[in-house]
Design a protein around this nucleic acid. Structure first.
Length: 283
DNA sequence: ATGTGTTCCTGTCCGC
DNA sequence: TGCGGACAGGAACACA
């Protein structure tokens, strides 16, 4: 489900009830998600103050007073929902437990954060904060698309010599970290680049143009609270609404929205995943 | 080294 | 209604 904008939306929602607050108790309802959860996870979380809540790519990072960081990935269907916020900003009542509520953080202030993930492609881990960069899930990630290291020179170099379709290249988290199936389709449409074009064979000026397009799409999506197709909810439970802005994603057969373009949005499958594009606008 | 297909898991939707 | 198949926002892994 969640790509960078959804994860950032969730992080922003969690910040007021987690950052600076103490985890009074952690409820771990099963030993594994995608992989086994870390040893003694509940104990290692209990009593810990969250120093800050950050994000790297699609990972939410909660730095703890103990010197460890809680790493959370939402997989395809993961949610982190707040209930019982003491200041009444969100749902005050704690809802009945639901199927797939795998981890629940009981905050000292009264808020509860429930990690629910039906498909269990999500994951959590604990690792020393000072060594996060070398953690096996983090170390090979490419630059943050909204960060300073992601620019035209970088992307041109990263694409150089690559024969993989640009769609696959942008999904490769080692090249740029945080894009997923939705925002790659949307960015390529805005940049007018055909998803099947080999990454290494895009004119430099068009690669350069792709950089601000990617940033714009992600920023707009964050602003909209992400895209809610099926599973995504903000931490407050609200839906995101960027899906209403999709130009191509999930619009197979619909008319292209470019003024005067008579094209029809197409769906193809690349590396086993759907890609949506306009065959007339994208070359 | 690079590129592609398979796999994990559950839920939902669509056609018959 | 029920049943089977396709598909879903991710990404590690096995293999050519």
């Amino acid at each position: 489900m969640p790509e960078l904008p959804e994860v950032e939306t969730v992080r922003r929602g969690l910040e007021p009830v987690m950052a600076g607050e103490v985890i009074a108790r952690a409820e771990v309802n099963r030993p594994d998600l995608r992989w086994p959860l870390p040893e003694r996870m509940a104990e290692r979380l209990t009593g810990q103050r969250v120093l800050r809540l950050g994000r790297r790519s699609k990972y939410i990072l909660a730095d703890l007073e103990s010197g460890e960081t809680l790493i959370v990935h939402l997989g395809m269907s993961g949610r982190m929902l707040i209930s019982g916020d003491p200041l009444g900003r969100f749902h005050h009542d704690h809802p009945a437990p639901e199927k797939h509520d795998h981890v629940v953080l009981h905050m000292a202030g009264g808020a509860r954060i429930t990690f629910n993930d039906a498909r269990r492609f999500g994951h959590m881990d604990l690792a020393p904060t000072e060594a996060l960069d070398t953690h096996w899930l983090i170390r090979d990630l490419g630059p943050e698309p909204l960060g300073n290291h992601f620019d035209a020179a970088y992307l041109t170099a990263a694409f150089k010599g690559r024969r993989t379709p640009v769609k696959s290249a942008l999904l490769d988290q080692r090249i740029v970290a945080g894009l997923g199936n939705i925002y790659v389709s949307e960015a390529l449409f805005r940049a007018g680049i055909h998803p099947r074009r080999h990454a290494g064979r895009i004119a430099p000026a068009r690669v350069a143009a792709l950089v601000p397009v990617i940033r714009d799409v992600l920023r707009e999506a964050i602003e909209a609270g992400g895209s809610s197709l099926r599973d995504h909810r903000q931490a407050t439970g609200e839906l995101g609404y960027f899906q209403h802005t999709f130009r191509v994603y999930d619009r197979e057969g619909a008319p292209c929205t470019t003024p005067d373009c008579p094209g029809t949005i197409r769906r193809i499958v690349q590396s086993g995943r759907s890609t949506f594009y306009c065959p007339l606008c994208q070359r």
